[in-house]
Amino acid sequence: MMQRFKTKSIYSLFFTLIILFLASLQAKAMSKQEKQLLRLIPQKSELSQWHMTYEPRFFDEENLFEYINGAADLYIMYGFRLVVTADYAVGADSSSVNVEIYAMKSPLHAFGIYAAERSPDEAPAEIGVQGYIGANVLNFYKGPYYIKITSFALSEDLSGMLKQMGQYIADQIKGEYKEPEMLQRFPRQDLVERSERFIPTNFLGQSYLSNGYRCDYYTEKSGTYQLFLIPFKKELDAEEAFDLYKKFLLETNRPHRFDKAVGYQRILVYGSDQYDFAFCSGAFIGGATGTACPDAIKNKMQELGRNLE
C-alpha cells in the first residue's frame, strides 16, 4: 500500500515538473516574441527629434479587447498574435504620436487585416510592401506585421515625420516581401486601386469558404462590382464548396444559367437587383458579385480564368 502511494507520488511529482517545464518554455516563447516586436521600434535616440513618452505595452489574444475594444474580434479573426504599442513626442512642438505594431499569423494575414482597414481614398505611401497616409495616420504592412502610426496634432511637417518613423520600422523588418501572389491573377483593367482583400474566414458570408481574395471593379456602365477567387488544396474540396455555394445562390435568386462539365461548373443567377456569377475550375472557385450588367464581367471572367491556367 505504502509502495503504491510512493509510486503515485513520484508520478505526480514527475507530471507536475513536466507541466512546469512546458509552462516555462511557453513563457520564454512569449517573451521572445515580445523582444522581436520591441526591436522594431526606436527605444532611445535611434531617430533624432523623437523620444518615447510612454513605455511599450503588449497585448495578446487574451487581453486585446482591453486595448481596442470590439475591434479585437476582427483582429483575432485575421490571425492576430501580439501587439506592441508605444507613444512618442516628436518635433519642435513635441507632437504626440502613437505607434502600434501588430504581429499576425503570416504575411498574408498581415495583408488581410491591413486591407480590411485600408481605404481606397487615402494617398498611397511607399513604405513596407504597401501603405497609405491620411491626414494624421500612416498605416502599412511588411512581413507578418501591420503597422499603424497615428498623431492627433496636425503640424505642418507631420506627414514627413510619420514617414520617418514608418521607414525606420520598415527597415527593421528584415526580408523581401511582396503582395500576395494570388492577387496577380486578377484582371488589372477597371480594378479599383487598393481595393484588394484577403479574407481568412466566412468569405462571401459563408462559413465553409475560407482564405478568399476579392477585388472591386468599376465602370460607368456597370457601377461597382467585385471579382473573387478562392484557392483550395484539392479539386474535390473546391467542388464540394461550390455545391454549397450554388445551393446558397439558388435559395434566394432566380437561376439564369447553369452549366456543368467534367472539372468545370459555372452558374449565373439574378437576385433583386444584381447578378451573381460563380465558377469552379480545378481547385479554384471564382466569380463576380454585385454586378447589374453581366456583359461587363465577360472579359474579366475570361482573363481571370486564363490567369488560373
Binding site: D259, K260, A261, L268, F279, S281, K298, E309
Partner: peptide, 18 residues
Amino acid sequence: KKGMERREFLFKSSLGIA
C-alpha cells in the same frame, strides 16, 4: 460539355451570358 477543353469551356461558351 464532356471532352471540351477547359479554356474552351470557361471562356468561349461560358460567357455567352450576354
